[in-house]
């Protein structure tokens, strides 16, 4: 017999205990450590490609290298989403788990006349990890050569660079005044990325914290 039902699985093995939340197998572990790492792969991730300057760019209102928290009406509910200017003419929208259909529908209405827009669901194609704590920058500094200082990478900044030897998107998204970064890479390297961050964070007492939706 198959050992799984129709449950989505992240590339990162959940730390025990495992539960099913929003259709995903996630870790139910809770940590109060000063530095934590969380697998946020269940979040909906939709990529948009459009002209860097045009109707779509105007409607998204997020320039390259910045992040914006917005409230969108998805279906019959208001949801928090995060719009990331991940590249020139490229955006990534992060939403609650399972909101792909409504997000893609919403995004597909953005295109103006003559504006070619590609909306591609990457929810299953990208691993996403959140690193939170006052030592988060020190941990990341072992994995990336980017300048993580406040003047270059303040809260709300986004960049794409090599992290742990992988092409990765990094979003600084502080939580309640505590430094926090979302790091995303292509799915198949997700476990490797997670393990790298754990290894780098060991000297700061990093612990795994479980995913709590919607985590936006």
């Amino acid at each position: 017999m198959a050992e799984t039902g129709v449950v989505a699985r992240s590339p990162i093995a959940p730390a025990a205990p495992e539960i099913i939340l929003a259709g995903w197998a996630v870790s139910a572990r809770r940590s109060g450590a000063a530095l934590t790492v969380t697998d946020c792969t269940p979040m909906t991730k939709v990529a948009i490609k459009a002209a860097p300057v045009g109707a779509t760019a105007e409607r998204l209102e997020v320039p390259f290298g910045r992040v914006s928290r917005q409230t969108w009406t998805l279906g019959d509910r208001d949801c928090s989403v995060m719009v990331v200017g991940s590249g020139p003419g490229e955006w990534l929208v992060l939403g609650p788990p399972g909101s792909q259909v409504s997000l893609i529908h919403q995004l597909s209405t953005l295109a103006g006349d003559g504006d070619l827009v590609a909306v591609v669901d990457l929810s299953h194609g990208r691993a996403l990890v959140r690193l939170t704590g006052s030592w988060a920058a020190e941990v990341l500094a072992k994995e990336t050569a980017m300048d993580l200082g406040d003047s270059v990478c303040p809260d709300g900044a986004a960049f794409r660079s090599a992290v742990a030897g992988l092409a990765a998107d990094v979003i600084r998204d502080d939580r309640d005044g505590t430094r926090s970064y979302l790091v995303g890479c292509e799915r198949s390297s997700g476990q490797y990325l997670f393990d790298s961050l754990l290894e780098s964070g060991a000297e700061f007492g990093i612990e795994v914290d479980g995913f709590v939706p919607p985590d936006i």
Partner: peptide, 15 residues
């Protein structure tokens, strides 16, 4: 198959 369901589909095929 959407990758997060890959293992489920694989095992379903075998079963």
């Amino acid at each position: 198959v959407p990758a997060s369901y890959g293992l489920h589909v694989w095992e379903t095929l075998l079963d």
